[in-house]
Write a protein that binds this DNA or RNA. Structure first.
Lengths: 66, 66
DNA sequence: TACAAATGTAAAATAAACTTTACATTATAT
DNA sequence: ATATAATGTAAAGTTTATTTTACATTTGTA
């Protein structure tokens, strides 16, 4: 699965730590999701997308191997 | 988090086992997600929504406690 | 009513998400 | 060039997702 978190963060001009704080997870969790170390839960995906004002599909995209 | 899986399944007229097979998880996993025993990964949410022809937000909805 | 299909559920095992702490590297501004 | 902020990463620990097997209950149908 791919994601556009880094880009959306840049548009909002917020750091990984900012985003983490806004959805109540650790900064490392955001870093790990953003760099595809693991797949977030649906609750986190919904919260992240909501902060960006985008749908989950606009932020996270399935790939062939998923 | 709430979900509309049961309703969307009814619209498509498919069983939990059918849905499970289509996204390559066990039937128990679908049953557990559908009855809110746990929160699916974003990959599963995207696959489930795609089968229903709906967005993730149309199938899964955040609640206050999330 | 009886049979079959669908759903609910439970326990044990494994994999994966997430936290905390801590430190290293990279980028940015002064 | 130096200080500071941001990001990358790692290890250990806890919690949660997911699988497998198995059985019980409910629902639909002949």
């Amino acid at each position: 699965m791919k994601n556009r978190i880094r880009i959306e963060r840049a548009i909002l001009d917020i750091t990984q730590a900012d985003l983490a704080e806004r959805i109540n997870v650790s900064r490392q969790t955001i870093n790990a999701i953003e760099s595809n170390k693991y797949v977030p839960s649906t609750v986190l995906a919904l919260k992240i997308a909501r902060i960006f004002g985008k749908s989950v599909e606009e932020v996270f995209e399935l790939e062939e191997n998923d």
